[in-house]
């Protein structure tokens, strides 16, 4: 990755007037053309991070550049590159769809271009609604209008704040398709979500954020590999003080009470080694009383990251 990141966040701190520290030294590089998901529970600082990058909130310290332009010193150049789809559906109810999209384009400094906007509305299946008032549209259509507004000025970076919160399954799939198309067209997309499956379905990279800090940024595939790991728990009839020498090659863990052995393996691998292990356990003279297998999910990794101490519980 020699290419300059399209968005570079450095040591970003945001403390609200109430004294609440929403961002606590966030640093993050976003690569051109990727889809990155900011995953975190409610109140983690996802929206504050987006708001600060887009200029709706002002950072307490730290810096953000977009396309190499500082968002404070050189805000015009930086903001011109950004499109923002907010979490709440905020639209003027009595305005026509096409007018509200025209307004957004003008506001971002571009001359009118109805051909481009017509095309955009068509892509978002809004074209037949272009002359309708916003108030007459369904919730899903309103969300599309928000996306059309954000894309009206041909931004390079698109922020989607919880694009599918409170949206039904059908529409969520639609939204994912739209995102995939945008990515294919070369738009960098940053989306926040607290749905793990959403991050899993569409992101290239996943950043986990909690309490104003980035806990992890990783390629989704790497996370998926971790997810592919399974754990076999072998309950023993009699507790053991130590793992027998003959079982050493399996890299087993012993449960604290000595009543179980834990074995990790790749469920996607050709050979899991389970049969051999079970034979060897028997050969070592141990009696098994029960077997359990368990998959470590992204959810679990996530829960383990955001709530210290919860990973142990999740294993029960």
């Amino acid at each position: 990755m020699t290419e300059e990141p399209i968005v570079r966040v450095r040591d970003l701190v945001k403390t609200y007037k109430t004294g609440f520290m929403a961002l606590n030294g966030v640093s993050l590089d976003i690569r051109k053309g990727e889809i990155i998901a900011l995953l975190g529970p409610n109140g983690a600082g996802k929206t504050t991070l987006i708001s600060t990058i887009c200029g709706i909130a002002v950072q307490t310290s730290g810096s953000v550049t977009v396309g190499g332009h500082d968002t404070r010193q050189d805000y015009r150049a930086a903001r011109s590159l950004i499109g923002l789809v907010p979490q709440e559906i905020s639209l003027e109810p009595f305005e026509k769809v096409v007018n509200t999209v025209r307004f957004s384009r003008g506001l971002f400094g571009l001359p009118p271009d109805d051909a481009y906007l017509d095309d955009l509305l068509r892509q978002l299946s809004l074209h037949d609604k272009r002359d309708q008032k916003v108030v007459t549209l369904s919730g899903g259509m309103k969300r599309r209008v928000l996306i059309a507004k954000a894309l009206s000025h041909e931004p390079q970076v698109l922020f989607l704040d919880e694009p599918t919160a409170g949206v039904d399954v059908e529409l969520r799939k639609d939204m994912w398709e739209i995102v995939a198309r945008l990515r294919a067209a070369g738009t960098t997309i940053i989306l926040t979500t607290h749905y793990i499956e959403e991050a899993e379905a569409i992101a290239d990279r996943i950043a986990v954020i909690n309490k104003g800090e980035i806990l992890l940024v990783e390629d989704k595939t790497a996370l998926m590999t971790r997810m592919g790991q399974k754990e076999l728990r072998i309950e023993l009839a009699e507790p053991v003080d130590a793992i027998p020498e003959s079982l050493a090659p399996y890299g087993l863990d012993r449960a604290p009470d000595g009543r179980a052995l834990l074995y990790r393996y790749e469920s996607t691998g050709e050979r899991t080694g389970i049969t051999r292990l079970l034979n060897d356990i028997q050969a070592a003279g141990l009696h098994m009383s029960d077997l359990q297998t368990r998959q470590s999910s992204l959810e679990e990794i996530f829960v383990g990251l955001v709530t210290p101490g919860a990973s142990g519980k999740a294993a029960e």
Partner: peptide, 13 residues
């Protein structure tokens, strides 16, 4: 009031 101000605040103006 209706929340659309986000646009004016994030625009290059």
């Amino acid at each position: 009031f209706i929340g659309t101000i986000y646009e004016q605040l994030s625009a290059p103006v």
